[in-house]
Amino acid sequence: MADKDAAAGGHGGGGLDPLHQFQIHSILDINIGGYDVSFTNSSLWMVIAAAIGYLLIRQGAGAGALVPTRMQLIAETLYMTVANMVRDNVGDAGRKYFPFIFTLFMFLLVGNLVGMVPGSFTFTSHIAVTFALASVIFIAITVIGLVKHGLKFFTLFFPHGAPLATAPILIPIELISYLSRPVSLSVRLFANMMVGHTLLKVIASFAIMLGVVGGIAPLALLVGITALEFLVAALQAYVFTILTCIYLHDALHLH
């Protein structure tokens, strides 16, 4: 406790810790077979994000009217965005993976946007969450590629047309490059969300520390950065999904 206070004081007083928002605390303690599987605030917001995503689509697509209501228009726009993304980046073979990709996109988009609500928790700002998602995608795509192409899948690790003598160097490099995909995928999302939310908190604490008169400039900046954060939230969900599509395309078509 004393350490924490000292650390907060070191940041310039006021007891404002910009990283406090990322703390995970247990809401409901659950212990199964020695493993801590407590229901935390992170899990709570994941459930909320999934529920909002489900209700949005359910509410929107339920009516199915020819002249859409606002809700239906939102649902249809989201659906069309992902449908076009899958068609452009994976091709017709990707159609059967559309439900998964659409679910992924909705989960991340709603999760990122729900995190912008003051007092909420952004579960995508934890690498544990994003890396778990990226690992599932990575393993699934590797298995899809192996099932679809058998041993021919391993030609992915040797660039087409390179001389055979370069294989001992090229294959490990390509292998590492392939293994780095889940890392870059998860780090990109987690880093963007965490940096954004920390920045918001830091600038907000400037506004508080400088008082009513001096705090106007940081407050104005804060308004601009908040808008930028909404852009980042939507963009990062989109980027995560589009890269999943590109990796899926690689596994389905091998170059």
Binding site: L179, S180, S184, V187
Partner: peptide
């Protein structure tokens, strides 16, 4: 940058 760091981290 992230692509670069990720490959190096894996290696």
């Amino acid at each position: 940058v992230i692509e670069m760091v990720a490959a190096l981290a894996v290696g």
